[in-house]
Amino acid sequence: MFSGRRGLGLALSVVLAGSILLTGCASKSQTSPTPGSSSGVDFTVSGSITTAGSSALQPLVEQAANQFMQKDSNAKISVQAGGSGTGLAQIAQGSIDIGNSDLFAGEKLTSAQAAGLVDHKVCVVGFATVVNPGVTVDNLTKQQLQQIFTGKITNWKDVGGSDQQITVINRPTSSGTRATFKKYALDGLEEAQGIALTQDSTGAVAKTVAGTPGSISYLALSYASSNNTVKMLKLDGVDPTNDNITSGKYPIWSYEHMYTKGDPQGLTKAFIDYMAGDEVKPLIQQLGYIVGSDMKVSRNS
């Protein structure tokens, strides 16, 4: 069993490395500058902008902003976290220049608040169902997963594992990750309240799953695949990998958004163009996210 798991991990990393190499080559072989590539970015604009919101997106935006500011020394981009809700609220009020969000604005804001916001999809993030390494189950069907999260199945022996109680670890109701998981893994079914521990975010979930026997939760793929203290499960026999997400076989993923109020101008426009360009792609991949242009499937809110 142990070697089997290690084999799975090896296979996964080969697939991952392969997909990264492939996308890397693909982007290099493009010769004509697409509108999104960095050659179209205007590095001469000056000014000062502020972005705030999603803490999942914050490391990427921060790194990209640092790179951008090295090229354009007259630009100042202040990157703040604060959560998707804060980002969306502040961009709707116009108190910042770019609002970062894990969710479509329409899912958080009223339609009046969301009016006038322009969506820029930065990248795609996949989510994996993860369990404590002591759990012997490797695969769950969507129905089993739903029954676990709605509290109908409470023991691993009912899904082919050993006789052990299932501890569900969930995210706060307002979390974007939870909304994505609920929408695409649970098909919108209401999770049972009170059966689950709630952890604030990715790091805490990983640590709790690693330390709690029989626990199950969900994590951003970028994090789960590099973290060997938790075990990833297949969903309906499909491995949670970037390849399976880009080809549309694996359903649990969401966009990371940058919202502007109205069409972006000046430095805001330059930075958003830069985020979509070639220079940020390696960063996106390094963080384990999927470059938007690799997606063969798409979604609208």
């Binding site: 809700g85 969306l88 609220a89 804001l109 979390s175």
Partner: peptide, 17 residues
């Protein structure tokens, strides 16, 4: 703890906030 965890992901002016 509910304020700590949820304040940042909710939007001012909505019921959840």
């Amino acid at each position: 703890s509910i304020i700590t965890m949820e304040m940042s992901d909710t939007v001012m002016g909505t019921v959840s906030n």
